[in-house]
Amino acid sequence: MKRTGPLFTLLAGLLLALFMLSLNATTGTKPASTSQADSPADKVSPSPAPTASKASPSPSPSATPSPSPTRVSAPNADYAGRTDDDSSAVSVSLRDGRAIAYFCDGRDKESWLKGDVGADGSMKLTGDGGSVLNGTLKGGSLRGTVDIEGGHYAFTADKAVKPSGLYRATATVRNAEVDGGWIVLSTGEQVGILKRDGKPAPAPRIDPETGAVTIDGQRLTARPVTP
């Protein structure tokens, strides 16, 4: 005997999936989404910012057709810099064709982003909450955009020499999970956020030479981040 109930269940799931997918596809291309606070980035041209037009030769199409095993990876290096509006800092660490980036405004907006780097030095990194970093390596610097929580930021990050770069420290301090991220810029400035049980706040300064930082009376070590 054959039952049809389970088949209907599967069919319903399939239809729901297709429905969601079409919804995603249509909202993604609409220039002005009607309902969302974190409206999606215009995925056709990743640089609608007025400043970034000439420096970013649309990284996404070039990244797509290269999952080939024999890719030449971009050289290992760290990059750190500020957004064009000077509100936030961005730092990216490249190792063996992979990249990890940290976007941080020093107050409450931050994201860790990860992804692959194409042979041509283009990258599309993604992080939690749908944040996206599109960037291209050119000369000694990285130029790109970050879309996070509805904001769109163009940035330039120059090659960073130690101790500048990105640092992270996670620990449990007085029963609270603390998670700190720092960007040390070439000027010696630091931009960091410290989350206690998920609540973001400006981070105390780290000693850039040793990574030592004191959080709520406890001494921790922030370590350089690599992919």
Binding site: N24, G28, S33, D38, A41, K124, T126, G130, S131, D147
Partner: peptide, 12 residues
């Protein structure tokens, strides 16, 4: 999931 380029965003 592997082949297509992650969109990074979707409707909320």
């Amino acid at each position: 999931g592997k082949v297509h380029d992650p969109e990074g965003t979707a409707f909320n």
